[in-house]
Design a binder for these strands. Structure first.
Lengths: 222, 222
DNA sequence: TAAATTTGATAGCATTACTATTAAAACACA
DNA sequence: TGTGTTTTAATAGTAATGCTATCAAATTTA
């Protein structure tokens, strides 16, 4: 079986491509474990170095700082998702079913790909939910953006916006709706896990999430 | 004119109530300026102390750490907004107009109240947009939640959910829609300022934002 | 006026976020 | 097989961060 993985992660996020060396892959693997475990605020390169049995200085040769590492991971997710969407929708005729597929992918944890041993997709999905917004909610956002570090997110939204426009070419807010769909999927999962009064989902109820977002989307477009 | 400000900020966020002393008020005033200027990641009590001509130790007597200070400010906003919503909707008969009023308030910068000299509402609104999600996107969220530090947000969502249910008692996802409305308003403003490819709004176009969210809401409920 | 509280000044300490240097190890290739 | 190049580990160091503690001066309150 051929790999579906034809996407490339935007590269200004790292000093040296981590997937090209053993240490780099261990950095990715363990940073996902550690981020999932202790969260971005408590995550340091010192702790990461310790958990992979290496040194801070070695990690700095791959990533400038933890913010760039987060951006790398987030971009990996956007790239993975965009690729997945293209693979799973290109054979579909109905634009509505295409949009449904997108929402289904966004609303469910990405499944483990055993051919990529350095990314734990389930944990990465959880990191996206809990930390993803911090990739752009920083003072450096304009600078990062001008370096192309959000191309993954923008590409994804563009695809979704096009599906929306294919269903209703007159709808005026396709990009806003696209980003709202993405953000809402992640937010509602987080709320179901931690602030249940802010949602109607039971914890990690991906099926109800899909119903909610799909209905909202369909009603809004028409 | 009587003050509308009958709300109280949830108090576990602070060690000592800042509005009851001169220093406390200066802490609020300057923390809003500084947060708006340099963002939460670069914000430190040392810098804050310097900018108000006081010391770190003094600030720690009011707030345990910067996360609690952010929670205080965020709760102030939720409280302010809830109060404002109640004042501006209680005389309205139409539930739809009530919901419209909520969205209008969420989608526009809160206007300056000259009777509260220690809060710059415009800057606070900008802080909510850029930093608000960080109040809950932390590993301590469950602990904070059990101490009641998100009651403000939950109360607000509950009110909005009730307006939604008053319009359509059969709608199944009133809480999810309520939190989606709130998050979307803030997100779309941020995107319009920094990641315009993710939205159709022009920068700070509150009027288009209102149209977008109102249409989305109305379509979804019916 | 005394007692209690609040603030400012100063000090200190463990951790974080890096940067620099050097030597060992691994690898590339001739 | 040896030589050069890149990669990594080890170590050290520095400025900033995130606190805590102590004490005296100033202010408030009783």
């Amino acid at each position: 079986m051929l790999s579906n993985l034809t996407f490339v992660v935007s590269n200004k996020t790292c000093v040296k491509d981590p997937i090209k060396s053993e240490l780099g892959k261990r950095i990715l693997l363990e940073s996902i474990n550690l981020l999932d475990e202790i969260g971005l605020e408590h995550f340091t390169f010192r702790k990461l170095a310790k958990s992979i049995g290496s040194t801070e200085a070695s990690i700095y040769r791959y990533f400038e700082n933890k913010h760039k590492l987060l951006l790398y991971l987030v971009n990996w997710y956007w790239g993975w998702l965009e690729n997945k969407i293209l693979v799973e929708t290109h054979h579909l005729r109905s634009n509505y079913v295409k949009l449904e597929t997108v929402i289904e992918l966004l609303a469910s944890p990405i499944e483990q790909d055993p051919t990529i041993e350095y990314i734990n997709e389930e944990k990465l999905y959880q990191i996206i939910i809990a930390e993803g917004a911090k990739a752009y909610l920083v003072k450096e956002v304009d600078e990062d953006n001008s370096e192309g570090l959000f191309l993954g997110y923008k590409g994804l939204c563009s695809i979704i916006a096009n599906f929306i426009l294919a269903i209703n070419p007159k709808y005026k807010h396709s990009h806003s709706l696209a980003s709202t769909i993405v953000e809402t999927c992640h937010n509602q999962i987080f709320f179901s896990q931690h602030l249940p009064k802010l949602t109607d989902l039971k914890e990690d109820d991906h099926s109800t999430l899909k119903d909610f977002v799909l209905h909202l989307t369909a009603a809004t477009i028409h």
